[in-house]
Design a protein around this nucleic acid. Structure first.
Lengths: 208, 208
DNA sequence: GGGTGCGATATAACGTCGTTATAGCGAAGC
DNA sequence: GCTTCGCTATAACGACGTTATATCGCACCC
């Protein structure tokens, strides 16, 4: 079937292009990921991007989905301890850490730094899957009797809104807190999002 | 001094270019605002953008700042009524309404949809001024005895994080609530951000 | 008042981009 | 063994931001 003038087979080429795109995105940002640079890096021609991904849009769609997959993995990798409150805080920390570890990837997921790529409905639904990783953690807190009053998914969305709001402003540079105050604010923001669902009277102690 | 081959003087040209950029951004999105289209629309050459703004970067810097100025105006335009709780809700509604009225402008302010433009420290500080519009509203709530426990600016930042988190996810399409549930969630998110600072025991009633 | 210089303008060119047309090669089917 | 189909590489197209070049108009100065 394929011709393979290049050293790599079709699947290898696909992976190599994706890796190169991720690396370029991570190291130099969205503007650096161009079809020509990718082709040069991998040792193929720009045409491969069209046969394998249907264009730059398709390639970035794959990056977008991989970004949400990785975020989900980071969230699911948070250990389940004996203290559910600690676990909840771990979820929030994992979210922020994942975003800060690859901010350009986070940008591709929630902003539109590459003009060619626009989210499709399927992409948005795929992104939604990641939210279930958060919802699972919230469900454990409900089962442990620490949270109550709403469905786990509903609480998870509120938690997501809070975490994303903070992370988005932090990454864009709009938060001017000193480092210590910044950490404290993130904890506070997450705590406030969960407090209304805490069982104990000292609501704000959740996730701290 | 200037030559004015064109019909417009320097200042007029500057305003015309800014208006055209805003219009193009609003109607067709960030990808549509190109130096050539702007020059054609205004009836000048691309060079004017360099003499007047120093490049596309400078032009978008002006758009960015105008975006924050307009957001601040919308927030300050919220009427002060006899009920401070109503006013607080009005602030949140104004923020979201302003973003949804010109989503592409909101994108320029908080995302990086145009590769050429990168926020400078001065731009970020300029954006910070808008936050004082929110802080003023929060201060009124403190003065009225509805909120307490932190500085107005601090509470305003938390409110901003909540509002931005919701609006950002809403605009990017990542929120899947039905319309009614969406409105309710926004109210809830804002309420949760303010609840820890409410004086009454029924904390979540703030801003509803 | 007529030259002079400077700054803004318009035109054209350069390099890069995403994309598409064209040509060529390698393996599968008969 | 020849044809056919799909993938590849090359080249070209149009659009982009930016820069170099040439031109023009007004202010200044002698």
């Amino acid at each position: 079937m394929p011709v393979r003038k290049s050293v790599l087979s079709g699947d290898e080429l696909r992976l190599a292009l994706l890796d190169a795109a991720s690396a370029l995105l991570h190291e130099e940002g969205p503007h650096a990921v161009s079809t020509r640079r990718l082709a040069d890096l991998v040792g193929t021609s720009t045409q491969s991007i069209y046969t394998l991904f249907g264009g730059k849009q398709g390639l970035l769609r794959a990056v977008y989905r991989e970004g949400f997959d990785r975020l989900g993995q980071h969230i699911r990798a948070v250990p389940v301890t004996h203290d559910v409150r600690v676990d909840l805080r771990g979820l929030g920390d994992a979210y922020r850490a994942s975003a800060k570890a690859s901010p350009h990837l986070y940008s591709v997921m929630f902003e539109r730094p590459v003009a060619e790529f626009e989210c499709s409905d399927e992409d948005l639904e795929h992104a939604l899957l990641t939210l279930y990783a958060l919802a699972d953690g919230v469900q454990r807190a409900i089962d442990a009797g620490v949270l109550h009053g709403a469905e786990a998914f509903d609480i998870a969305v509120n938690l997501w809104v809070a975490a994303h709001g903070f992370v988005s402003l932090e990454l864009s540079g709009h938060l001017f807190d000193e480092p210590d105050a910044l950490e404290a604010r993130y904890e506070a923001v997450l705590g406030h999002a969960l407090a209304p669902y805490a069982v104990s009277a000292s609501a704000s102690s959740v996730a701290r």
